[in-house]
Amino acid sequence: MNSDQINYLLQGAYGTLLLSVLTFVFASMLGLVIALMRVSDNTLVRQTAFGYINIIQGTPLLVLMGVCFYGPSILGYSSVPALFAAVLALTVQSSAFLGEIWRGCIESVPQNQWEAAECLGLNRVQRMFKVILPQALRIATPPTVGFMVQIVKNTSFASLVIGFAELSYNAKILNNATFKPFLYFGVAAVLYFIICYPLSWMSLRLERKLTLARS
């Protein structure tokens, strides 16, 4: 493996990181909205979020990628940039999972915190943003960091329908040219592992710390 090939794989890893970061940023915004909708007072809003989560979680990511890639063409755009389609599909999928994770965290804040906030005369929005969410954030950190691993792995799906040049796409190209699968996919796996393992490790550590703090 010469330095050009190593460079090419590292470029792929950069693509993977770029996709992951963009996805996480947008998915957390949308995911927070979904989570808040899931705990809303309004039945219709709650049901909408519930339906969204169920539909997205029952759809393969590859199908979402296809819909996001070919869908804009019906609105008259002849083609969309691969990065846009990939981030859109990943955001839609991750927001459904993050929304469900965060709903659990919001609901696990003890009920008496709600009541206490109400007694202090805070309105619903203040209660949510000043009392509940700061506490939910602590509970939410370990599973969220764990889910980042999922996002990094899911970016590899962008190599298939859309053909975005990220790590597994570049590894496949190198393999097609040289046919040394163990070498290139092995190195790609190591690179993925280097990105993902620290996140997994951190998630586990944070979770242990939280369990200790709560017991």
């Binding site: 792995k153 590899s156 597994s168 590894a171 040394k180 699968p181 996919f185 092995g186 796996a189 993925y192």
Partner: peptide, 18 residues
């Protein structure tokens, strides 16, 4: 758990056939 399925299946299937 820390590598994507796509890479695992490429590694296994293309690897074994090589």
């Amino acid at each position: 758990r820390n590598t994507p399925l796509i890479i695992q299946s490429y590694f296994l299937i293309f690897g074994l056939s090589s």
